[in-house]
Design a protein around this nucleic acid. Structure first.
Length: 590
RNA sequence: CGGGAUGUAGCGCAGUUUGGUAGCGCACUUGGCUGGGGGUCAAGGGGCCGCAGGUUCAAAUCCUGUCAUCCCGACCA
């Protein structure tokens, strides 16, 4: 049956909704695909559902082809499994919690690692049952601090999540590869541009993790790429420790007055005015900037740490969070400085053993960490830990030591890739998929063990694999549109062809009906604009807004036995004989 | 949580400064004309002006409080 515009539950809007900022959100609402109920929560109208279902169908096919089996878990879950893994608390405010009539705690599942693991534990107890990969396409709930951009970051969203269970690490590697492979097929079939980047595995305790990002200026993730093929989320970029350099000729460190130089820029200016450099002039890269950070543990305890990095770089908050996780990272506040009078703001510098960072109220020494670019033997201009004074030629290894590394500096375009594969370029991306070797963390916590060939209990190793289904609707809408509206790829379009009957000649409508029958007879899905007494302008505008890639116009040409085949993307329209219209359409479709 | 903005019909907005019977465009209903680019004429329906309190003869408008939404940031497998 065709989708008839005359009866379709649809109202297109002439104007952009005022709360929509990004193109995909604007167009999906205007064209009548979705409607907002609350921040980050949307209703799906018939057209939206058609697209979502098509995406799900492709995901399902490729999952099944990869040997995964579909299951379906509840979205409403009891607290207990999440208490065992600690996520009832770890998830914090992002978890939707609720109580039943007996006052028992429940949650709306933000993800399903726990219950998948428990189910496998319930049913399986032998290595012979493994490997196993199961998946579901299901609604997730996360009470995001700030939902944004329509479907791109919602509080309710559909995700395909798959979990693999293996006895051995090699098995996990295979399961992971199968999913990764399926993801590539899925995104290729959908026509979504993607980049696979190394991701941070840290917080989840896994060993290997990659993200599939759709490059987009509105993306929330920043990733780096090199010409030689390196690609990683900024959080996951790890730099090598700079090789030692020979600093034996470095002049002795000297403390000098440096009035009014609390910032790097003022220090560089002062240096150039008062201290000549052997070659060229001083720049911010010659200074050692010492940033005071506060690490907040899950118990809420605040710990100060000082990080030394080249003065031309700032701290990247996300990299810092990933590095110090699960602790949270903040800039030190005025209050923190007050507790440690030894920290002279604007004039902080490293010392030989860090003793002088023992403040009176300090419970322990403040750790001093350095950026990996700070090479042993390199000399720096840096704070003297006295107001209005800096030190010149302070040499790492000779004049100061560090307690460790902190690879948290911002990455700049043009920085060398850690693997030597060229210079990095920075881009933004939308995370559309994530594959993850979880390892044994959840299996351990939840006691998922099986007997191996020797009759010994072994802990199962797991992988977790997600695709944001509803987010993909937005990503596709974002990638495929023009000033007139949406332009869906054929793989996800709500219909294969959009047939317009226009004019007051009933013959045009009869031809449209006839072509609809013929199209459906060869397996094409049809949207049919059979609305009467509507001006052609309205019909054309709606067709363009809705975005079916192929449009057939049955109008004034029918008297000459012709209809027009309209390519939505290229905007080309050609007149074709009615009897050959369908054949032409089929041959034009890719 | 910090900064900014906004709540008036399904959607987009004016009206608030200076208090005096609720407006416009789109959408919707009926009829006519029109019939290849959101056409036109006429007649209609639709409002707790976010909510609560206050000031006043009188509040969309002034005052106090509160709730909500959007944007930026923080946060976010």
């Amino acid at each position: 049956m065709p989708i008839r515009l005359s009866s379709l539950f649809l109202r297109t809007l002439r104007e952009d909704p005022s709360d929509a900022e990004v193109q995909s959100h604007r167009l999906l609402v205007r064209a009548g695909y979705i409607r907002r109920n609350a921040p980050g929560i949307f209703s799906w109208l018939p057209l939206g559902l058609l697209v979502k279902n098509k995406i799900e169908a492709i995901v399902r096919e490729e999952m099944n082809a990869a040997g995964a089996q579909e299951v379906y878990f509840p979205g409403l879950l009891p607290k207990e499994p999440f208490e065992i893994t600690g996520r009832w608390n770890e998830y914090g405010e992002n978890l939707f919690r609720l109580k039943d009539r007996k006052d028992a705690d429940y949650l709306l599942a933000p993800t399903h690692e726990e219950v998948f693991t428990l189910l496998v534990k319930d049913l399986y107890s032998s290595y012979k049952d493994l490997p196993l990969t199961i998946y579901q396409i299901q609604i997730k709930y996360r009470d995001e601090a700030r939902p944004r951009a329509g479907l791109l970051r919602g509080r309710e969203f559909v995700m395909k999540d798959a979990y693999s269970f293996d006895v051995t690490d090699e098995g996990l590697g295979k399961s992971y590869a199968a999913q990764r492979d399926a993801y590539e097929k899925i995104f290729r079939r959908l026509g979504v541009e993607y980049v696979i980047v190394k991701a941070e595995a840290g917080a989840m305790g896994g060993s290997k993790s990659e993200e599939f990002l759709n490059p987009s200026p509105i993306g929330e993730d920043t990733f780096v790429r090199s010409k030689g093929g390196f690609a990683a989320n900024v959080e996951a970029v790890k730099f090598e420790i700079a090789a030692d350099i020979d600093g034996s000729d470095n002049p002795a460190a000297e403390v000098h007055d440096s009035p009014n130089t609390p910032t790097i820029a003022s220090l560089v200016d002062y240096s150039n005015a008062n201290h000549s450099k052997a070659e060229g002039s001083w720049s911010s890269a010659d200074t050692l900037k010492n940033v005071v950070l506060v690490l907040i543990g899950q118990d809420g305890k605040r710990e100060l740490v000082i990080v030394g990095l080249p003065g031309d770089r700032g701290v990247d908050q996300k990299r810092a969070e990933a590095f110090f996780g699960p602790k949270e990272v903040e800039q030190a506040t005025e209050e923190d400085f007050k507790k440690y009078p030894v920290l002279v703001k604007g004039y902080i510098g490293p010392t030989k053993s860090g003793q002088q960072f023992l403040g009176e109220e300090a419970e322990s020494k403040i750790r001093y960490l350095v950026d990996p670019r700070i090479a042993k033997g390199s000399a720096w201009i840096t704070g003297a830990n006295q107001d209005q004074k800096h030190i010149w030629n302070l040499t790492y290894g000779r004049d100061f030591d560090a307690d460790g590394l902190a690879d948290i500096a911002e990455i700049k375009a043009g920085d060398p890739a850690p693997d030597g594969s060229g210079d990095l370029e920075l881009s933004r991306g939308i995370e559309i998929g994530h594959v993850f070797q979880l390892g044994r963390k959840y299996a351990e916590a939840l006691g998922l063990k099986v007997l191996d060939e020797d009759g010994k209990l072994v802990t199962v190793t797991m992988g977790s694999y997600g695709i944001g289904v509803t987010r993909l609707v937005a990503v596709l809408a974002e990638s495929y549109n023009d000033e007139k509206g949406l332009v869906w790829p054929e793989s996800v379009s709500p219909a294969d062809v959009y047939i317009i009957a226009t004019g007051k000649d009933p013959v045009a409508f009869e031809v449209a009906e006839q072509l609809t029958l013929e199209a459906e007879a060869v397996g094409l899905s049809v949207m049919l604009d059979d609305r009467l007494k509507l001006s052609p302008g309205v019909k054309f505008a709606d067709a363009e807004l809705i975005g079916v890639p192929w449009i057939l116009i049955c109008g004034k040409g029918v008297v000459d036995g012709e209809v027009e085949l309209w390519n939505r993307r290229s905007n080309e329209r050609v007149a074709v004989k009615i009897e050959s219209a369908l054949a032409k359409l089929i041959s034009e479709r890719s």
